[in-house]
Design a protein around this nucleic acid. Structure first.
Lengths: 175, 175
DNA sequence: CGTACTATACCGGCTGGACGGTATAGTGGA
DNA sequence: TCCACTATACCGTCCAGCCGGTATAGTACG
């Protein structure tokens, strides 16, 4: 049945992402993914014929989530800048998990992953630029978002980082 | 002889870092490191009894390089902020390579690596804060540096990023 | 209605290769 | 003679991918 198929497929992708985020790409083995999703290895390979296909499936889902996120950013009540910065900090959402998982894959010099991340960055930047009409400011804010994101994924999380950023951006009239 | 020992040791660490940077941690195997450094596997294990020791050796060297970098930052002619931002972009220096290599290791959830990176961040922040006397600004600039650095390591390099950042920081009177 | 066949969704054992690490015998220079 | 290696063989484990098999639901035909 189609419904059952999608559910198992998504559970496998969820498990793959979770393993990537919590333990790195070395630990995200097919066996580990399968057992985390409570599926046999054969079951995993039924849905994804290889590890590469698992990565492709994950990145395809990431792009979908990204498109939805950009739409939310565009129409956010507090404005796109605030939305962008707030969501640059890992809240544990599905999208955050997918994003971090993709960057783990990108670290293994997988161009598919860096291409996907690059696309997302372009989409976000387009919204920032459209809103601010100031390329330097838009680029700088995007870098701050990248920094917040990087710190989170590297375990360098600074508690009040967002507060300081808001302070500075207020001085610039960007918030 | 001590001189010969250090040279081979450093060549092994260089090879390890290069492999980490150019192909990710999965590819940085003991065999690959040894052959890249033109040393036999036995030779590698003579200097580093395990892969863990190889990582420790790399991180120890990184800290040394970091201390030297902070000193240069403190006394830079154009000021620490400019120095920090300029060197946040990968120039291919030994220190850049060591930093990226460490972040690859950190992605595998190795706390030794994230601890080392966290220490470096603290050192840089102390200099920024001392110079700017403005915590929000210092934190924000550090995030921008993190962003520049992250983009470089993820293959998302934006050509004129630094120009835009300088523009914005000039408006803030930080440059 | 029942038999034959097909498609979908999965199970789990197996293999071959890679990898970390051990061990050991040997070599060239100071 | 010791140090700093080289060279090579080997071990146990892990892992990607393969494959034969199972269960179930649906379909076509007589």
């Amino acid at each position: 049945m189609a419904a059952t198929e999608r559910s198992t497929r998504d559970r496998l992708l969820d498990a793959f992402e979770t393993l990537l985020v919590s333990a790195g790409s070395r630990s995200a083995t097919l066996d580990a993914v399968a057992s985390a999703a409570q599926v046999s290895k054969g079951g995993l390979l039924y849905h994804f014929h290889s590890k590469d296909e698992l990565v492709d499936g994950m990145l395809a889902r990431l792009r979908e989530q990204g498109r939805a996120d950009v739409e939310k950013m565009r129409t956010a009540t507090k404005g796109p800048v605030d939305f962008y910065l707030t969501t640059s900090i890992n809240t544990g959402s599905d999208f955050d998990r997918a994003l971090i998982a993709a960057s783990r894959i990108a670290q293994d010099n997988d161009s598919r992953a860096s291409d996907a991340l690059g696309d997302l960055r372009e989409w976000w930047f387009a919204v920032l630029l459209e809103h601010l009409e100031d390329e330097s400011l838009a680029r700088t804010i995007q870098l701050i978002g990248d920094g917040l994101y990087f710190d989170d994924t590297t375990g360098l999380n600074e508690k009040n980082a967002l507060k300081h950023v808001r302070d500075v951006l207020t001085r610039l009239g960007a918030l």
